[in-house]
């Protein structure tokens, strides 16, 4: 882990956990955009943004690359009654599509996103299929 990245994480009160496969940093939703702006300024590249359903909350997972071979996940948690997070699309342009997908499949709304609309499902869809509460219909066989 680079020292300047550690500094940035500490500045935003992120907890760093290096016991897993890749280092992960957990941060509060309020510090989400600020931390990413700092990390982008340090030259970290965006790889992917996605989410995990934690039943009572949705965990946002953003994978960043500190070098072509080193990856780091930054995570935050949005409780079910407030599925709202600041957008990263002004920091990382590709996150625009990634966040639309998270909205489409998990229902997390990103504040400040230029176009918060459905991306994979039809525009008139009403469900968020990757939530665990959404169950697939039984097949006839």
């Amino acid at each position: 882990m680079r020292a300047d990245v550690l500094d940035a994480l500490a500045r935003h009160a992120a907890t760093l956990d290096e016991s897993g496969f890749d280092p992960r940093a957990d941060v509060s939703v309020d510090a989400w955009a600020g931390l990413h702006a700092d990390l982008a300024a340090l030259g970290l590249e965006f790889s992917d943004i996605t989410a995990l359903d934690r039943i009572d909350a949705v965990e946002l997972v953003c994978w960043l690359l500190s070098s072509p071979s080193e990856q780091l996940s930054v995570r935050t948690s949005c409780l079910n009654d407030r599925l709202l997070a600041p957008t990263l699309s002004d920091v990382y342009p590709p996150a625009e599509f990634g966040e639309r997908e998270v909205y489409d499949l998990f229902g997390v709304v990103f504040e400040g996103h230029p176009d918060m609309s459905r991306i994979l499902q039809p525009d008139d869809a009403t469900t968020f299929p990757l939530r665990k509460s959404f169950e697939l219909a039984e097949t006839p066989w």
Binding site: Q121, F134, A137, E138
Partner: peptide, 14 residues
């Protein structure tokens, strides 16, 4: 298969 019955994705929501 997909055009016939949905095939490998028959139980999908979409």
């Amino acid at each position: 298969s997909c055009a016939i019955s949905g095939g490998a994705f028959a139980d999908s929501y979409n």
